[in-house]
Amino acid sequence: MKQDKPCIPRREFLQTSAKKIPGLVVAAAALSTGKTLLAEENSEYNPEDHNYAMGVDIHKCIGCGRCADACKKENKVPLEPEFFRTWVERYVIPVEGEARVDSPNGGIDGFPEIKEKDEILRSFFVPKLCNHCDNAPCVQVCPVGATFKSRDGVVLVDESYCVGCRYCIQACPYGARYLHPTKHVADKCTFCYHRITKGMLPACVEVCPTHTRVFGEEGHRSSPLMRFLRFKDVNVLKAGLNTKPKVYYAGANGEVR
């Protein structure tokens, strides 16, 4: 992808205007890690122009758990091991028998040695997060309209409107939602909505050392995500449920669910 060089003093601009006026996006921010061009130069942020999505390349994931760690720090997710907006699973597939999966503290503290003695055929890591489904069951079941799909294709929770009935948590096939222990409302991954609308990358993508996670937009021809989708065999999780997820996995086997 060709990258435009910014013509305005980036840092000052970022700090003074972009961060304080939500919706205004500058080209400087669009440069994020030199990977995504998320918005047009100097134009008002228009949600209708975007349809955010993510790609995850399982072959590249080293299971360092930096994504889960950064997510908790960026989004102030409770630190207890029962609350995650994103987490990393380890799959161990023995020569004989069922695949085994674990995710101690979401992978943040690394993974312990594989204890089982039987011979291992394959093993790999799978980062998980909200799939921001196009046909999201959580949005369908919310009785009051506190969880919804925004115009830029991100499923969000309105924390000052949620009644805390937890029907959405039951309806999510991916276990991506939890009840916030102090706010008492449903909570989940927002694709770091406060970052992406300013042209930055989600925190998990920002810190991923191997570029396992690719963030971008569907429908934009020149986007790292489109390149990812073009060149890799991608899968979505639990496709049979017709939730139409927007997190695409490259190298996800049948065991991954």
Binding site: C142, P143, V144, G145, A146, Y161, C162, V163, G164, C165, R166, L179, K183, H184, V185
Partner: peptide, 15 residues
């Protein structure tokens, strides 16, 4: 409910 005080929303803005 996590927020019983918001229960009226079920009548006000039922989805």
């Amino acid at each position: 409910l996590g927020h019983p005080e918001r229960c009226l929303e079920m009548f006000l803005t039922p989805h």
